[in-house]
């Protein structure tokens, strides 16, 4: 089975940078599950959906010679996916911090009713933490531990509820843990 391959710190990009990268030819890789994509999808010209739960089987479908930006609901599952692709030898990969929730708050184009979808995300407490994948337990706690330890309860709930205006610095700090490191 696998052996260790030390990984570089994952590159983190914001939704605005992501849009620019798409214009320059990048491919968006949405790792949310099909039911989430059906509810609300990114409206961009170059996107592929490979759920995190299927990434191990399907990563080879992705091009290694093209810039890839991994996206999900809040940027937690896509960070894991980014590292997984790095492990598989991809070098042109980034994680979009904040996920589709931040994308929507920026007013960027989506397919589906953004307001309704955000309301559903807020009602589902696990929505923040990627409850629908098999590895969910681990991931949920990773996400929640993260937010809990690094910011106030208010910021944590802003992250998980996605209800805060994009202008709130707490929210973006919360949803982009690696930004500080970058």
């Amino acid at each position: 089975m696998n052996t260790v391959r030390p990984l570089e710190e994952a590159k983190q990009v914001c939704p605005t940078t992501t849009r620019r990268l798409i214009q320059e030819g990048a491919l968006l890789v949405d790792v949310r599950e099909p039911n989430e994509v059906a509810r609300l999808a990114f409206d961009v010209p170059a996107i592929v959906n490979i759920p995190l739960s299927a990434l191990e089987q399907r990563w080879s479908e992705l091009p290694k010679d093209r810039e890839l930006v991994l996206v999900c609901e809040v940027g937690s599952r896509s960070l894991k996916a980014t590292y997984y692709l790095q492990y598989q030898g991809f070098t042109q990969v980034s994680n979009m911090e904040g996920g589709i929730q931040k994308w929507v708050r920026k007013g960027f184009p989506v397919i589906g009713d953004a307001n309704e979808a955000l309301a559903v995300m807020e009602r589902a407490p696990g929505g923040c933490c990627g409850e629908s994948t098999p590895a969910s337990g681990a991931q949920a706690s990773a996400c929640c531990d993260n937010t809990a330890t690094r910011s106030s309860p208010r910021a944590a709930s802003a992250c998980c509820g996605g209800s805060t205006p994009a202008a709130n610095p707490l929210a973006s700090a919360c949803c982009a843990p690696a930004m500080e490191a970058a």
Partner: peptide, 8 residues
């Protein structure tokens, strides 16, 4: 992830 493990 440096061990390529998706499921913990």
């Amino acid at each position: 992830m440096s061990y390529g493990v998706m499921s913990t």
